[in-house]
Design a protein around this nucleic acid. Structure first.
Length: 263
DNA sequence: TTCCATGTTCCGCA
DNA sequence: TTGCGGAACATGGA
């Protein structure tokens, strides 16, 4: 679930439900998911404090604490937030839970435990440490800088789009959608693509991510013509009606339409 | 039972 | 030396 659009939806939920509330209690049910800090130390940073602002970079969500530090949330393949108005509710696989003095609670669930929760002094420090590229929707990643950074890549265009050090936020599902919308075969060598095609991918990337956010990252609410709700081998292509194919590209399964997408 | 899953990191090979 | 691609990671559903 959690690629850029999903995390943006989480950010908005957090912004709406968790900002400026005193943190009364913190439960760390799966301490192994905390990175670089002990559960007790992390808890005591939060309790008595408040979240004051949020920032999303790619698939990471950073939330500022009134004490100065920032909590870093990463959702792996199965993470999400849930908010409860009542204290007697709790979702399954609740790895971390924050109870607010106002009586509501925020749960961080991550069934597969591939996510991470941590603490950083500042977003800058964190981004530098991780070596993340610019956020895929950042205006600074314009057509020319997108083309420039992709021009150094040797592998497939699909894996280039998913390289978080190049640009942050695009994962397996949205790389497929972007390439479908741009009519480019996922297994095309990046170095074989002309500049106009890279520019088309850039344009499709911005459009797809924004539309997915507007749809609340809900597959059923995506615009007509999206491949995303049809990630099955026997599905029909929303554009030509032909059959969607599934194939491994550098270890991940990609879905594409062989007649609409080409090198 | 075996395979697969929307993420990241590590290792071997070119 | 650098970078690509596959395996591994943890867990549960088909």
């Amino acid at each position: 679930m959690p690629e850029l659009p999903d995390v943006e939806v989480f950010r908005r939920l957090f912004e709406q439900k968790a900002l400026n509330l005193e943190i009364a209690e913190v439960a760390v049910n799966s301490p192994e998911m905390l990175v670089g800090i002990e559960a007790d130390a992390w808890r005591s940073k939060l309790v008595g404090s408040q979240f004051t602002e949020t920032l999303r970079h790619g698939k990471h969500l950073l939330t500022a604490l009134s004490g100065g530090a920032w909590v870093v949330w990463h959702f792996g393949m199965s993470g999400f937030f849930s908010v409860f108005a009542r204290m007697d509710e709790e979702p399954p696989h609740d790895r971390v839970r924050i109870d607010f003095a106002s009586g509501s609670r925020l749960g961080y669930s991550c069934q597969r435990k591939l996510g991470e929760v941590g603490l950083t002094p500042s977003p800058d420090t964190f981004l530098k440490e991780k070596g993340l590229g610019p956020d895929a929707l950042d205006p600074s990643l314009d057509r020319s800088s997108f083309v420039r950074s992709l021009s150094t890549k040797r592998g497939t265009i699909k894996s280039a789009l998913m390289d978080q050090k190049l640009l942050a936020g695009v994962g397996n599902v949205y790389s497929d959608e972007i390439l479908f919308q741009a009519s480019v075969y996922p297994g095309a060598r990046t170095s074989d693509l002309q500049e106009e095609r890279l520019a088309a991918i850039h344009e499709a990337m911005r459009r797809v991510l924004q539309q997915a956010i507007d749809a609340g990252a809900d597959p059923q609410a995506m615009p007509e013509g999206f491949l995303l709700p049809r990630r099955e081998s026997d599905a029909s292509c929303p554009r030509c009606g032909g059959s969607v194919e599934k194939k491994k590209f550098s270890g991940r399964s990609g879905f594409y339409c062989p007649s609409c997408q080409s090198v």
